[in-house]
Design a protein around this nucleic acid. Structure first.
Lengths: 199, 199, 199, 199
DNA sequence: TATGAATGAGATTTCATTCAT
DNA sequence: CATGAATGAAATCTCATTCAT
């Protein structure tokens, strides 16, 4: 990377970081370009050298955040098949314990709300969602060797997004009991079928 | 109710219905008072006879929608204890099958995103959330007679909100397999403890 | 006066009292008809049975207040010529001591500011001002028998309005010394001429 | 001053000049930002680069006008003590002769009416008023050497503001006689005490 | 590359006034 | 005589975007 390219990348990161913070704090529509610019330590006009519009910024953020999430899931590829189930379970539990993810959730809400209306953003989100799903489906179907891999994948993702939602609505939730239950639920999802036994 | 009171109630409903539609279609912040007014078939100014501000409309909608959700959960009180677990399970499944809830989900996203910033709305949401939680906790703890009633409640609510989220991100999801898994998961949450057995 | 007429007069008074209070508290333009109506304990629409417009209300207030002031000056007509000068002086001093006039001053500011733009109101104010001036000029010229009666009248009125103004800008003013000076000044205005001696 | 700073200062002056004219012609509340902007030859939105709100413009004008008035009084500091009394007297007379001050008076009324409601503006006005008072008190007490300097100061200021008021209410006033009387009154205020002699 | 002045459309909100009841 | 629902124009203010420097 040339010096100019490095500088360009750094500038873009500055903008995305500033914008993400602003979006979380004030929401997409209340976060003015002026404030984002101030936080990114550049002039409002200059942002338009790097992004065509405000929407392009949120698209870039969605892209970046989704890529991060995909990366985290990609790490699971390196995990031994026997341990996969428990590693994934611990991931979910970690989400409960570290409340840092609440910020992330807030950004997620913003992104989802926006994607409802903006087809371009909806497209980016769904592309990344599919990537993660494929990754997980591969792990569950091929490495762990379970049937109904796609459904199990979706069910796992239900747990992750549901958990974020729940932490947002009930911040005082009793974590320790939840952890036990979440462990049980994840195991149930990743366990060869006993479906029908309990009905 | 006098004629005047009836008219007033009808007018307020008109506004809330119009606003809810606008919010779903374009989001809280893109839905202008002018558009809401047009849809409610009254002048923009007149809305302010019934609501102090746009935020007050949002708050009223959140209240109304949350109340609806709370009501649906309240119905479970009448269900026989033996059937409770399966009735609740069927509810979750119903959410998957009827995609009408997607609209509802969209409004939910709006509400959650907004509650992030608006303390008054956060308060309304949490009040209703607590009501639902208490209701469920009572059913699970007293009628079904399970331990860890609060954690099981939260876990159930994770399923509901997670599902809504998932349907939004992956509209093409294969429903039939999901239903089977969801049934199993709900049962696992509502079954006397085998926690620790799988770890 | 018939009962109906009495009722009408009372209603009009209610409106004028309410409006005057509103104008003092919030200014002419910030005092909405809705608030005036609420304070007058009637509906906004009903005010228009008695007054053609909001401007008509301020015109009526100006009229009423000016009439009151004229009345107070008319009382001076009954005072013995020898005592006139000192009675008038005591009037000025009374204005300093009773700060009740500050409310009146506030309303005066409102009226003057408004009259600057509204020719109808300017006309009412000037009509009453002329009436008071004529009254005073008559007293000073004919009863006390001074020359330059018109100029002395204006000069006296300068003291009254100037005083009100001053109390508004410097509410902490030391009153007792002012009283002595005001007494001297009024005497100087109402004393046969030594004009030119000091020049 | 850099070019940018000069431009900024000029822009701000444009706004204040335009706003002051609008306020005099139509009053604070009838002068819309759109009209002010048009007169200042810029877009309404751009005014908000320089002033936070319409009130901030009002405050700035009050500040500027009050500062001008204070400056005029400050000039008196350079006058010889012997001539001070007569110079001040001539000032008052000048106010009568030049009717240009009527415009100024109109703005003054607006300012006073507004200060009744807006504490920030009341504060600015009182700050400048105090400055003028201190200046005058110093001149009267130290340079001329009179007792009761503060009361005499207030009394002089009564003349100035009273005069402005009077010219507004009685535009047809006979000036020449007034001048003679005003001269006499000012002398009386600035003359070592004969208080009590006339009572 | 970088600035920030400038625009102008559009947002929310207020309010005098009218009118059906 | 009395109400208050209803209107719609206008007010203040915000903000994405452009452009001269």
């Amino acid at each position: 990377m040339t010096g100019a390219e490095k500088r360009r990348t750094a500038r873009i990161s500055q903008i995305l970081d500033a914008a993400a913070l602003c979006f979380v704090e004030m929401g997409f529509h209340r976060a003015g370009m002026a404030k984002i610019a101030a936080r990114a330590k550049m002039s409002p006009g200059h942002i338009y050298h790097y992004f065509e519009s405000k929407e392009a910024i949120i698209a870039a953020i969605v892209d970046r955040e989704s890529a991060k999430a995909a990366e985290r899931f990609a790490e699971l590829d390196a995990v031994d098949s026997n341990e996969l189930a428990s590693v994934m379970t611990e991931r979910a539990i970690q989400s409960i314990e570290e409340k840092t993810d609440i910020l992330q959730s807030a950004l997620n809400m913003e992104m989802l709300a926006e994607c409802q209306r903006n087809p371009e953003i909806a497209c980016i989100i769904q592309r990344h969602d599919k990537y993660i799903r494929d990754q997980l489906t591969h792990l569950i179907g091929n490495k762990i060797g379970l049937d109904l891999a796609e459904a199990r994948t979706d069910m796992m993702m239900v747990q992750f997004s549901g958990l974020a939602n729940r932490l947002l609505r009930n911040p005082d939730m009793d974590l320790s009991s939840m952890i036990a239950l979440m462990r049980q639920t994840m195991q149930s999802i990743l366990t060869p079928d006993t479906i029908g036994d309990h009905v």
